[in-house]
């Protein structure tokens, strides 16, 4: 984590905006924000954000690198797309928020306790095993995310729902043992490997050792 972060700091010493442009998905749009605040006003979760999108954009321009990348706010986006629809400058705000979150993750700057980041990782790890999401395992992992005792409590609370789902065949307890996979699991892993290679190459192009 630290290494890449230090390298990026060194490379974009003066302009966090340029760093965002080069490394964050859709980051080249940030400069086009005109600070009208429609995004912040449109966000259904806006009041729970420490820094609503408008502020995030201003902070990027003001070079507040740590505050943005360590912010919980970029993880608050639920992809409702209200801001994208309303932005008079047509900025893909949702994508930028996810791009910032993704970049923060790469740099290892995500706050340790952020639940969204945790869940995202859990979802990814679960999916990677068989190429399909194992809902039973994912559900259980979620229940026990905050410790064993908490997990039991949540499980008991949802007991009735679980039984009903089993009765109607919506949940199969056998999934706890291995679970079913996509038809061509080896092929799936090959695809992912190739994608990772492409992504690494792209990052290397913009990365600390590249260009400049």
């Amino acid at each position: 984590m630290g290494e890449l972060n230090t390298a990026m700091i060194e490379r974009y010493r003066n302009s966090f905006l340029k760093e965002v442009e080069a490394n964050v998905e859709e980051g080249e749009w940030v400069k086009m924000c005109m600070q009208c605040g429609v995004c912040s006003g449109s966000c259904p979760l806006g009041k729970f954000w420490e820094h609503p999108p408008q502020e995030i954009f201003m902070m990027i321009r003001a070079g507040k690198r740590e505050a943005v990348l360590q912010s919980e706010s970029v993880w608050m986006c639920t992809s409702c797309y209200n801001c994208i629809v309303r932005c008079p400058r047509e900025l893909p705000i949702t994508h930028i928020m996810h791009g910032l979150a993704h970049y923060a993750k790469r740099l290892g700057l995500v706050p340790k306790t952020n639940p969204t980041a945790k869940f995202a990782q859990m979802f990814w790890d679960n999916l990677m095993v068989k190429g399909r999401v194992n809902e039973l395992k994912l559900g259980l992992a979620l229940y026990f995310m905050n410790g064993f005792g908490d997990g039991i409590k949540v499980a008991l609370k949802n007991q009735k729902l679980g039984m009903a789902m089993m009765k109607t065949g919506r949940m199969n307890p056998k999934e706890a043992f291995g679970g079913h996979a996509v038809k061509d699991l080896a092929g799936f892993h090959k695809v992912l490997k190739k994608a990772q290679e492409l992504e690494d190459a792209r990052i290397a192009q913009n990365g600390p050792s590249a260009g400049a």
Binding site: L17, K31, M34, Q35, M58, R61, A62
Partner: peptide, 13 residues
Amino acid sequence: YRSGQQAMVTFTK
């Protein structure tokens, strides 16, 4: 205005 933003002029309120 957009032209200036594209040229990376920083607009600070």
